[in-house]
Structure formats: structure tokens, C-alpha cells
Write a protein that binds this DNA or RNA. Structure first.
Lengths: 337, 337
DNA sequence: TTGAAAGCGCTACCAT
DNA sequence: ATGGTAGCGCTTTCAA
């Protein structure tokens, strides 16, 4: 290990004070341009890099942000994180990524770690936040933490006082229903997702509230599942046992839709002729399976942008701020050839 | 923001010295059990958490590790990171995840940031490391950095002096060839991946070197592609234009295999009857598409374990250590009903 | 315009 | 067994 060079050495070599070097590095205060030039050269020559740890300690303000997702191997979260990291880094932030497993023990261990690490903010996606049965106690816990460290929630949780960034899907839902109706799909089933998951219930509500307007009948029985391809497989197997297949299935997300699609393939059902399928999220892969998945698309870049902008201005923001990111309907082969 | 409590306050409240509190927290040195009890109570009561930033500054040894992948929205990397993060956190490490985009500018900005953040080590997956055309200059750069911060490379790069953890695929490759041969697939094509990518070339070599032993003819023309489902779509379209389809296609990874599969579906080819398909990686999704993808499976948990163990012992490890993680052949519907 | 020096919260060495 | 304190690398008053 070669010795790391510090601001002290640079100052010494340049025959100036540490304070001056600091001013030059951070562009704060006037400095003689001769000295400035000299110092900058030295910094270049010795490849000096300010120690962010020391900086963070002294200013008690780090540029590190905690990012908590249920599991990063879920493509939806991977995509959000991907976009967020790129923008965040551009803005000088560094992201610590943690998998909560939607589990209380994991979560509190993560929270402790992040607090200890003095992160600038914590972005909190899904998991227990999304669980409607999470006790009030949980919300209080979060609010307590958010007194110390700003929390950005990726879910719309009524009653939680912290900044919330989530997706607006109502208008896309209407477009989807209109689209289905226009193709004559009037007998529609909902499939996938757990009960008591906020975002899931919200999607179901939005569909239920608007279906009538388009003359669509939503089947009362909802087959639930987890949010994976396998979940889609299994749920579809159940559905296939029912007396009469619906004309179309609105799946809780694209992974489930893919599971339903492959199960349909396996059973020699033609999509969309025998049955139409839709999803949510617009994952990368959804364009490339055959047929492509019709979906309510997340705007990942906009979402990421909103997160990073929020982090930048976090100290000046009202802790009740809610930001809704618009979505789009994308039509592909699972509904229309 | 409530004021953060520090070791000083705890010491004061307990009527002991800071040093004593420190000893209690870190279990270093003997302490009167009365005092210990008192301090522990105070810590509990005030919810005190040691400031890792200060700790890191003073010991110049943080428990934060940099993790660089080309893009985390690629399921392979997402899976590796996922497993690694879980184990790492258990061992007290915190992971900063960065997307290099396989791009030089991104990479050096990341490296600078990570160095500034005083990370304990840097785990480096894919990207330019995997590029055989990366100049020697690049390797030197990395070696320079690894003098300051230990680097763990996720690729076998001959000539690079740093710890390397990668997959051993030769034996699985033989099993795959044996499997294909046993089903009578003797006319086999290779599809997907770029030239000059180390891991890709290695896979191809391993296949080429062993095919004869099983009486398999590997077609000379390799259709290359990127590593995505879309890449598989496009490559398969090209292949469909050739005079005669092979009996089986070995794809460079599962995503490409899925792309090939969906393109086959689109063209009413039956898999595996009309054409067999295999991949690498064993992604989650590969089990659940229909038919399931026969694949050379990564052992993600073992890989993650190796990474974390390496981080733990990094100071005592020979910088030339190479660790090969075994793989397995998993047979599914794309080769055999 | 510049520099000296006081911390930021913690660990570890040296005394006692 | 315990406490005092130097110092990790940096920013930021306060004086000059």
C-alpha cells in the first residue's frame, strides 16, 4: 500500500496553509491565483483526492445515500436503482444498496447501519412500507428515524410524514381499460399480487372503479400470487382450472404476466386470440418475449430524477411533499396483434 | 432533527471516561461490570449508535466496500450482488453499488469516488475488465489502485495482479456436450456474445476444445450479439435466414437464450423438437419460461460467499490468489421434454 | 488574502 | 481497571 497523500502534504509542498488548499479545492473564498495554480499542479501531480470520510465527519454531512429495496434481483427495483445511481453519481452522491427482504430484522439492522454511516438520506422502496398491516408503531419508528435522517419513501403511505415519491397510474389504467374494451374484451380477470399490499390494492381499486365506464366486467374472484414469474405460472394454473377463462387477464406486474404467458404457451393457448394478457412496469424483457407484453409502463428515468432532485434539496423540502410520477400505457402483442 | 448523541455524552452520563465507553462498545479490555451495565443501559436508553464515519476516519479502515458492475439491471449481476449484499451485511460490511456502463469515464469517476470514500475494498465485475482489448495501460492503472485499495476482480485476467474470483465452467461444458450428444444433437451452433470479451471467448474455447470428444460438430460461423434478450431475438433472426438450422444452439447466456426461444416461438418452431436451446447463468426466470432453459448454472451463493470471505481476509491474502467457483449443468425443456 | 487552531466522534496509547 | 489525550483529514471561524 502506497501512503495516501493528504491535504497537509499538499499544503506543505506548496508552501501555503492547509486552509488555503481547502479553499482552493472547494472554491470557497479568494485565493491568490499563483498559489492556486501551484496547488492545483501539486494535486494533479500527486493524484491527491480529498478524504470524504474526514469531510463527512467534520461537516456531519456525507454524500452517501442509503437505498433500501426488498431485493435487488427483482428487475423492477434493479431498473429503478440503475437509473437512480447514474443520476446520483453525476450529482456527487454515492449509493449504498441494501436488501430488506421485506423483513423486520433485516430492516432494522440496515437502518442501524445506515444511521451509523451518517448517510445523507435514506430511500425506502417497497417492503414493509407497502404492507397495509404494518402497525402504526412501524410508522412511528420511521418518523422517529426521519427526525435524524431524511427518509424518502417510494410508496404513497397515508399518514406517514415523510417525503413520498410514487407512481400515478390512474390515467394509464383508464387508457388500458379503454384499450381492452375497444378490442371487445369485456370479461376481464385480475391476477397476481398479495392482499394488503398498498400498491397492489391501489391498482385493483383503480381498475374496479373505472371498469364500468368502459362496459368491462371485472371478475370478482382475484387469484393472488407473489410478484414473480413463478407466481404467474402458479396463478395461471389455478385459473385454468376454472370453468371458463376470461377474455383478458390484467396481471399485477410484467413478471407475473410473463409467467401467465408461458403457462398459456404450455397449454397451447394462443395469446391474444384465446386470451389477452397485460402487466405493469414495462420491464426491459417485456418487449422481447413473444408476444410482447402490453403494460402500464413506469417512467424509470423520471422516477430516478425525482429521487435525486429530492435528495439534493432535502433540507429545504417540506416533509409532507408527495411527488407522483406519471406512467404510460404501452400496447404490444399480448392484447393486439 | 433531534441532536445526535455521541460517545462523549454517554461517558458523561455514566460518569466514566470516553475510553471506558469505547472499551465497552468494542469489547476491548477489561471493564468493571457495574459500569458496563450502566453504560449499556444508557446506550439503550438514548439509542446511541457509534458514528462509523468517525471510526473509519480514526482507524483509516472503513467497513464499506465498493461493488462495480456494468449495469445492475442485468439479472446476472443483480443476482450476484443480491447474494453478496446479504452475506456482507451479516459480516458487518456495507456495499456501495456503482454502474460502470463498461465505460472508461464512468469507471474512473467511480474509482475516484470510492477511493475518496476510503472503501475497504473494491469488487469489480465484468465491463472493461472483461475486454481483451483493454490496453496494458488499463491493467497498470488497476494495479496502481490496488496498491492503495485491494481490488477483487470477477474475471480471470491473466497478468493482472489482484485477487480474482471467477467461474469454473469447463466441466459443466463437457456435461452439456455429453447431454446434447446423447440426445443426438450433433450439429450445433454457438450464438451470442461479443468477440474480445474474455469470459465469452473462454466459453467458446471450452466448447470448441471438447466437442469432438462427443462427436459434435460446432458450426464455424458464430452469430454474435450483446447479452440481452433483444440480442437473442436479433441473432436468431439472422440464424433463421441461414440455409439450414442447426439441431441445437448454445447461447452465451440465459437472456440471449430467452430471446432465441421467443423468436423461435414467433416463427412457429417447436423447442426442442425443431431446435434445442441452451444458456448460461441459470437466472431465476430461466426456470419459468416455457419451456425451461437448459443452462450451465452459476452458483451465486458460493460466489457471494467467496467474495465476502475474501474481503474479510483481504489484508492477509496473496494478491495473486485465484478462486474458481464451480458451476452445474441444469437440464430443462429447451433440450429435453 | 492568508494562516492558526478548534473541533467533528472515535480509537488506542500511555499513565496511573 | 480506568482516564487523559493525541490524532485521523478536513472545514471553518477568528485574527492578522
Amino acid at each position: 500500500m502506497s501512503e495516501k497523500i493528504t491535504i497537509v502534504e499538499i499544503a506543505k509542498l506548496a508552501n501555503v496553509s492547509i486552509a488555503t488548499v481547502s479553499r482552493i479545492i472547494n472554491n470557497t473564498g479568494k485565493v491568490n491565483s499563483e498559489k492556486k495554480k501551484k496547488v492545483l499542479e501539486l494535486i494533479e501531480e500527486y493524484n491527491y483526492k480529498p478524504n470524504m470520510i474526514a469531510k463527512a465527519l467534520q461537516s456531519s454531512k456525507s454524500s452517501t445515500v442509503g437505498f433500501i429495496v426488498p431485493h435487488i434481483n427483482s428487475p423492477f427495483y434493479a431498473q429503478i436503482f440503475y437509473e437512480t445511481e447514474l443520476i446520483a453519481r453525476e450529482e456527487g452522491y454515492t449509493l449504498i444498496l441494501c436488501n430488506s427482504e421485506s423483513d423486520k430484522r433485516h430492516e432494522s439492522s440496515i437502518l442501524n447501519t445506515l444511521i451509523s454511516t451518517n448517510v445523507r438520506a435514506i430511500v425506502f422502496m417497497g417492503g414493509r412500507l407497502d404492507d397495509m398491516e404494518s402497525a402504526k408503531k412501524y410508522i412511528q419508528e420511521l418518523e422517529t428515524i426521519s427526525k435524524e435522517i431524511p427518509i424518502i419513501a417510494g410508496v404513497d403511505v397515508p399518514g406517514l410524514e415523510c417525503i413520498q415519491i410514487f407512481q400515478e397510474q390512474r390515467s394509464s389504467t383508464k387508457k388500458l381499460l379503454e384499450h381492452l374494451a375497444s378490442l371487445g374484451y369485456k370479461d376481464v380477470a385480475l391476477l397476481g399480487g398479495y392482499f394488503n399490499v398498498r400498491t397492489t390494492e391501489k391498482r385493483r381499486e383503480e381498475i374496479l372503479e373505472n371498469a364500468d365506464d368502459f362496459g368491462i366486467n371485472i371478475r370478482r374472484e382475484i387469484i393472488d400470487s407473489d410478484y414473480s414469474v413463478e407466481g404467474g405460472n402458479i396463478a395461471m394454473q389455478k385459473m385454468l382450472k376454472s370453468n371458463k377463462l376470461p377474455q383478458a387477464i390484467i396481471c399485477i406486474n410484467d413478471l407475473v404476466a410473463i409467467g401467465v404467458l408461458s403457462e398459456a404457451n404450455k397449454n397451447n393457448l394462443k395469446v391474444p386470440e384465446d386470451i389477452a394478457i397485460t402487466g405493469y412496469d414495462n420491464l426491459d424483457i417485456s418487449r422481447f418475449v413473444y408476444p410482447g407484453i402490453t403494460t402500464i409502463a413506469s417512467n424509470y428515468k423520471a422516477y430516478a430524477r425525482a429521487i435525486v432532485d429530492t435528495i439534493k434539496n432535502i433540507d429545504d423540502m417540506d416533509s409532507n411533499t408527495k411527488i407522483a410520477i406519471p406512467t404510460d400505457l404501452i400496447i404490444r402483442g399480448t392484447t393486439k396483434r
